[in-house]
Design a protein around this nucleic acid. Sequence first.
DNA 1: GCTTGAACCTACAGTTGCTGTAGCTTCTAT
DNA 2: ATAGAAGCTACAGCAACTGTAGGTTCAAGC
Lengths: 142, 142
Amino acid sequence: MLSIGTLAKRTGTKVQTVRYYEQIGLMPEPGRTDGGQRRYGAAELDRLAFIRHSRDLGFPLEAIRELLDLSDSPEKSCAQIDAVAQRQLKAVEARIARLQSLKAELQRMISECHSDRVADCRILEVLRDHEECLSDHKGPDL
Amino acid sequence: MLSIGTLAKRTGTKVQTVRYYEQIGLMPEPGRTDGGQRRYGAAELDRLAFIRHSRDLGFPLEAIRELLDLSDSPEKSCAQIDAVAQRQLKAVEARIARLQSLKAELQRMISECHSDRVADCRILEVLRDHEECLSDHKGPDL
DNA sequence: GCTTGAACCTACAGTTGCTGTAGCTTCTAT
DNA sequence: ATAGAAGCTACAGCAACTGTAGGTTCAAGC
């Protein structure tokens, strides 16, 4: 049996994060010692490792919840799992595209600034007026 | 003089967001009508446009605060402004690198899944075990 | 001048995914 | 037996907004 600290260390998680996952129902309520401390087994270790790895790959917690639910029905088709992964891939690709357009714009404004005084700094000029930009580079979240 | 709604519309901001910027001191407290409604002039319009455009380029609010402060000293050197932009560029590049490694991993696990049953879905297998991955793809925030 | 409805006001809760703190209790090693 | 590390709960805070409730004001049309 593992303490919460050991479980956290083994999975590269913080103790509070483990408790947070329990609070939002992503991790089950574990057994407790007589004194009230949490004790975990191998199944919980695996589940937490799954959660962490999915987070590292950028899956939102709600998607991870879906994946965990789906993996409880081993005989079903894995089409839904595929769909969740595809959705995540699309999200990642969209973010990359957005960031690349930001990168180009930032590089351009930095390279264009040959001034030395704030008064005619190209960076500020570009930030003041979106018309100075080549692309639209707007979007929801980064 | 512009109402908050007009100001928001002209800059592509939400009314609440404008009030939020005021609350955190990024926008100044504007004049008010006798009835207590906010009224804005051209300077505030420009300032908000600057903030929005900077946000669209991914600058955090604290960086924008720096830029606005710096632009109040037109005779100073623009080295600090350059530094803020460079910092943002580095942050964007780091994010792109991270996301590209996630993208590769996601593509790989999706393409490897030829199964039809959840029980032997490659996606779940990879998520269960980080050793299945090619790269480390870990990092702070996306 | 009056009415109506859109737009405004404040204040606060909720979002995502944690992280940090305070004040206390329990466990484990010596 | 005791000390200190690690655990417990509960709550506040981060970024950067967004949404809601319950009330007030503004501006246009008659």
